[in-house]
Design a protein around this nucleic acid. Sequence first.
DNA 1: ATTACTTGATAGAATAACACTATCAATGTG
DNA 2: CACATTGATAGTGTTATTCTATCAAGTAAT
Lengths: 297, 297
Amino acid sequence: MIDKLEFLLALARERHFARAAEACGVTQPTLSAGVKQLEETFGVLLVHRGSRFRDFTPEGERVLSWARRIVGDARAMREEVHALKHGLNGRLRIAAVPTALAMVERVTTPFRERHPNVQFTVLSRNSGELLRLLDNLEIDAGITYLDNEPLGRVATIPLYRERYRLLISADAPLGNRDQVTWAEVAQVPLCLLTPDTQNRRIIDRLLREAGGDPQASLESNAMILLYAHVRTGRWASIMPARLAATLGLTEVLRAVPIVEPEASHTIGLVVPAREPMTPLTSALADETRRVAPSLAD
Amino acid sequence: MIDKLEFLLALARERHFARAAEACGVTQPTLSAGVKQLEETFGVLLVHRGSRFRDFTPEGERVLSWARRIVGDARAMREEVHALKHGLNGRLRIAAVPTALAMVERVTTPFRERHPNVQFTVLSRNSGELLRLLDNLEIDAGITYLDNEPLGRVATIPLYRERYRLLISADAPLGNRDQVTWAEVAQVPLCLLTPDTQNRRIIDRLLREAGGDPQASLESNAMILLYAHVRTGRWASIMPARLAATLGLTEVLRAVPIVEPEASHTIGLVVPAREPMTPLTSALADETRRVAPSLAD
DNA sequence: ATTACTTGATAGAATAACACTATCAATGTG
DNA sequence: CACATTGATAGTGTTATTCTATCAAGTAAT
């Protein structure tokens, strides 16, 4: 039964019978039969199919949402029993928004001190993608914005507040200032994240509210690329203060606080809203709560 | 997998392999094999066995608690999909404490108006037994005391407050009074529920706190038996006011409010703390919320 | 229109899983 | 010490599951 529900989850992810089957490590007829068996036991069609996968029926959507929960719980059960026997081990799959990537270390480093047998996979994802992965149980936790766009059914643990700095060469027009306004920043050509990221949407909004017309002279989804450009002193960017501090400044590169307004957003851990959590997730949440005070401001 | 977890739940209920097997509709070797298979997949012993069932290992207890949740969710899923197709139907299994039995009608009657295809099984159980049944998914909901003894992991919906009356013949010493004190009642031989019931423990406590020495001249776990005695006019009892009102008074039988203190306890619906609830449970909770205001005082 | 490709369903065979009956060994009980 | 109780084990037949191979329906391109 649970295997069949996993088939259904894979089908929801892949929207394609053969690919879903591959993801489950079975052949396509096996997955087709599994889905059909679910439909027979429930006595309802779950999937609209023409000659190909179309979408889920309303009943299918409901089953899907139960399946997420049941499959998640079954995994949590296995994980917990394993942890009871062998101590905390396994792999934590985490995704973080690009602006928070450099801060993941603040959690993972002390976590590893405490639980050396736990391994990590950390992905860079934009916030929307991150929530989708969390929903589909493809990651165990995410680090993203908690207070800006809606999150869905998740539990959250605040980690730190993101504040904004203009990274710019000391030689440039605004480079010698102690602070600049968003209105002033709006006049500068910037290296920014792509518009699919929440950080970019936040910055665009702030620039627009200051009467500017946001346009990035260079866009990327990788923070490291933006930084590589900025540190030449020939480009400017807006980055979270903590990120700028982590990356370090050169002799010519300055991080100027941006005011009017002194905007800030909360970054934190999001985990599936399941009670009880899996032992790994629960330990990660504990570590996050432990670390957060040292990052407060 | 889910079937095996059901085996485990049955074993926890029956504490006996053969009886658990019978409850699941399989033979004893089948259930033994199922449990053993769970133990193999987890790589841990779940059950301490000597020549007979002893108890669950710590890991077994954890698996058990996950099993309750997973099996419950799987049932809820089936029920919900069925309800989507055929409207709300099926059977609601409810247990109520003896003093609340007569009030169950206040919920079931309007519920049936709304959902005529739902059938009921209503059992009389003491509060401890009721919570155990709820835990083991043997009932869908209970009606019991919400504010006296601890309940465990359940969601509660208050229904009404239970207040106490001395049911006694008008000829008897206290029979002509407008109110009596608990201290006075403590002097009267009473027909009461058995001490396994929460109502009896509440009354005993109130009598003891009034300096009395509670002793029942007749005990039963069936309210109807107590009433049959009392209505002869030759016995006395303490009953909740609403129950006395439902049963009706005879010419000689009076229901005298008991004061010092004017004790009261909240009676309400308890359902498993699962989010989302099954459609039947959810509808019952809705109905209870709808009815409660008309019973408030 | 015709052809080729994509996608999911179906048929048939091999294999694995499952549940049953019968029986046994261990532990209590009178 | 006989005897009942309890759960594990062996052996067997049945059912489920999964695979490979193939098919039919629908799309897209020529």
